[in-house]
Design a protein around this nucleic acid. Structure first.
Lengths: 338, 338
DNA sequence: CTGAAAGCGCTTACAG
DNA sequence: CTGAAAGCGCTTACAG
C-alpha cells in the first residue's frame, strides 16, 4: 500500500502548482493542452488515485446514496427487490455515485429508527425500496437529506415516489382475460397489504366492472396469500374454481399453478392464470406465464434522476411517477369458446 | 437541510475549544465529566452530525468496504449470494463500517477491469463474493487495499479465502446416504465449473471410495447442470436411474425432484435426493430436502474479521478458512432394506 | 494560462 | 483538564 500519491506530489514532479494539477485532472479550463496531457500522464505513471474524502470535505457531498430495503422484502426466495437494487446501483454508478446499502430491520422499522448512515453523514440522499410502515415513513421523510421512495406510495404529495403503474397494467391484463372469453375470474393477493397489490386489485376490478361482471360473484374466488405486512403464507384453493385467476405477482402465480396441478388441474387447459412482474425467466412444466413486465430499468433511472436533481437542488416536481408495464402474452391463458 | 452544525458551533455555544468538543464526543479522555455531558447534550439539541469526510481526510480511512459480486451469480432466482451479501453488510455495520456495492459485469471480469471504487479511493478494503475468472483474480489481488475472497479459492496461499467446507460436508452427506443403504448414487453438478462444486464432487467420491463403491459404475448417473461459468442450463435425467442422487446445491435438487416427479418417480419412495446449502426454507410437495447447511453467519463474520485486521495492519494468518456445515436430515432420503 | 492563499471539519501531538 | 496550532488533500475565488 505505502504512502498515497497526492496532487502535490504530481505538482512537485512537474514544477507546477497543485491548482494546475487539480484543473488538469478535473478537465477544467485554464490549463494548456500540453501541460494537461503531461499531468495526466504523470498521474497515471505515479498511480495517482483521487481522494474523495478531500473533495467531500470541501464540497460537502459524499457521492454516496443510501439504499434502504425493509428486511421482510428480501427474505429467501424474494429476489425482486434485489434485482431492483442492482439496477439502481448501476444507475448510480452512471452518475458517479455509489450505493451504500442498509437493511431495515423489523424492529428498526417499527421503532422508526433513523438509519445510521444519516447520522454518520455518509450519504447525500436516500432511496427507500419497498413499502414501509407509516411511522417509519413519517420519520424518514424528514431526514436532512433528499429521499425518493420506490415501489410504493402514501397519501403525501410533498414526497417523491417512483412506482409501477399497477392499476392500469392489471386492468389491461384482466381485460385480456375477458377478451379471451373469461368471466369467472378470481384474484390471488392480499389487497390490504401494500399499495401495489391494492392497486392491482382495483385494476382487476375496473376490468370486471367495465365488462358488467358481478364483483360479488367473483369474490368467491378471492384468495389471500400473505399477511398485512406482506409476508407470504401458505394458501388454500377456493372451494369452487373460476376459469381464470389473476395473481398479484408471478411468485404467487407459480405457487398457484403448483397447487392446481397437484389437484389435477391443468394450466391453461382447465384454468388460466396471469401473474405480474415478469422478472423470473423460468417457466414451469412448459407453461409460460402471461404477465405484466415491470420496467425496472426505467424505474431505477427515474428514481436516481429525481434524487440527483434534489441533491443538486434543482427544481423537481414532487409526487408520484408511474412507470408503465409491458404486457407479456404467453401460454398460461386459454381462449374460451362461448 | 440548511447549514450543517459543526464541532466549532458547539464549542462557541459553550465557550470551549473544538478540541474539547472532539474529545467529548469521541469519548476520549481529557474532558471533565461535567463538560462532556454538557457537550453531548448541546450536540444533540443542535442536531449535530459527525462529518466522516473530515475524519476520513485526516485519518486516511473511508470506513467503507467494497462488496463485489460477479453478475452471473445474481441472476434472477439466484438469491444465495444476496443472502450472503446481506450477512456481510450486517457484520460490517457492527464494525461501524459501510458496504459499498458493485456488480462485476461479465465484460469487466473478462477484461480484468479494476473496480472504480478502488480508483476513487472509496473503500478501505474489498470483499469479493463468488468465484471470478483467473485473470480477474490476478488483477484484484494486487489492488492497493486489502482483499478477502469468499466462497471460492485458488492455488494461492498469499491471499485470504473464506469458504464452506464443501469437501467434508459432502462426504458426510454422501456417507449418510450409504448408511441408509444406498450404493447406486448419482451426482448432479458440473465439477469443472467452480472450486466449490468440484470439492463437493470429491467429497462425494471420497464416501464412495471409502465404501468400496465402483466410481465408474456411478459415473453413469452423472448429470451436468451448468456450463463452465456456473450458469444453469436445463438438464436431462440419465437413461438409467440410481437409488439416490447427490446434488451440488438445493436449487438443482429441487429442479431434479421436479423432473423426477414429472416422469412419475416419487421422492424419496423411488429415488432419494440430497442437496447442499439449506438457505431455502420451502419444501416441495411435502418433501423437505436432506442437505448441508452453509453457515453464512460465521462466513460473514470471519471474512469481515479478517478484513478489519488487514485494514488495521494487524497480523493475520493468510490462507483458506473453511467454515463447516451442519448436516440437516429431512425426509428426502429413504432407508433401503437390503 | 498559471499559482498563492484560504478553507472545508476534524484530530493529533504538544504545551500549559 | 483544557486549548492553540498544524495538517489531512483538495478546490474555489482571486490576482497576476
Amino acid at each position: 500500500m505505502g504512502k498515497a500519491v497526492t496532487m502535490s506530489d504530481i505538482a512537485k514532479k512537474l514544477n507546477v502548482s497543485t491548482v494546475t494539477v487539480s484543473k488538469a485532472l478535473a478537465d477544467k479550463e485554464g490549463v494548456s493542452d500540453e501541460i494537461r496531457a503531461k499531468i495526466k500522464q504523470v498521474a497515471n505513471e505515479m498511480g495517482y488515485r483521487y481522494n474523495v474524502a478531500a473533495k467531500s470535505l470541501r464540497g460537502g457531498l459524499t457521492y454516496n446514496v443510501g439504499i434502504i430495503i425493509p428486511e421482510r422484502f428480501i427474505e429467501v426466495g424474494m429476489s425482486f427487490y434485489w434485482q431492483l437494487y442492482k439496477k439502481v446501483a448501476d444507475e448510480l454508478k452512471e452518475q458517479n455515485y455509489y450505493a451504500v446499502f442498509e437493511i431495515l430491520k423489523f424492529s428498526d422499522e417499527e421503532n422508526a429508527v433513523v438509519p445510521k448512515m444519516i447520522y454518520d453523514n455518509k450519504v447525500d440522499g436516500i432511496i427507500v425500496i419497498g413499502q414501509v410502515v407509516m411511522e417509519y415513513f413519517e420519520t424518514i421523510k424528514s431526514v436532512p437529506v433528499p429521499v425518493v421512495f420506490m415501489d410504493f406510495y402514501e397519501k403525501d404529495n410533498t414526497q417523491d415516489f417512483v412506482i409501477t403503474d399497477n392499476f392500469h397494467s392489471m386492468y389491461m391484463l384482466t381485460s385480456h382475460l375477458i377478451e379471451m372469453g373469461h368471466r369467472d375470474i378470481g384474484f390471488v393477493g392480499n389487497f390490504k397489504s401494500t399499495s401495489s397489490i391494492q392497486d392491482r386489485y382495483l385494476g382487476y376490478m375496473k376490468a370486471l366492472i367495465e365488462n358488467d361482471i358481478d364483483l360479488n360473484r367473483c369474490s368467491q374466488w378471492y384468495i389471500n396469500d400473505r399477511d398485512k405486512e406482506g409476508v407470504y403464507k401458505d394458501f388454500e384453493l377456493t372451494e369452487t374454481l373460476p376459469t381464470a385467476f389473476v395473481c398479484n405477482c408471478d411468485n404467487v402465480a407459480y405457487d398457484l399453478m403448483n397447487k392446481l396441478q397437484e389437484r389435477g388441474y391443468r394450466v391453461p387447459e382447465d384454468i388460466s392464470v396471469v401473474g405480474f412482474d415478469n422478472y423470473k425467466l423460468s417457466s414451469k412444466n412448459g407453461v409460460a406465464l402471461t404477465t405484466a413486465e415491470v420496467d425496472m430499468n426505467t424505474m431505477a433511472q427515474t428514481a436516481v434522476d429525481i434524487l440527483m436533481k434534489k441533491i443538486n437542488k434543482d427544481e423537481v416536481k414532487k409526487g408520484i411517477r408511474q412507470i408503465s408495464c409491458k404486457i407479456i402474452l404467453n401460454n398460461s391463458v386459454k381462449k374460451l369458446h362461448s
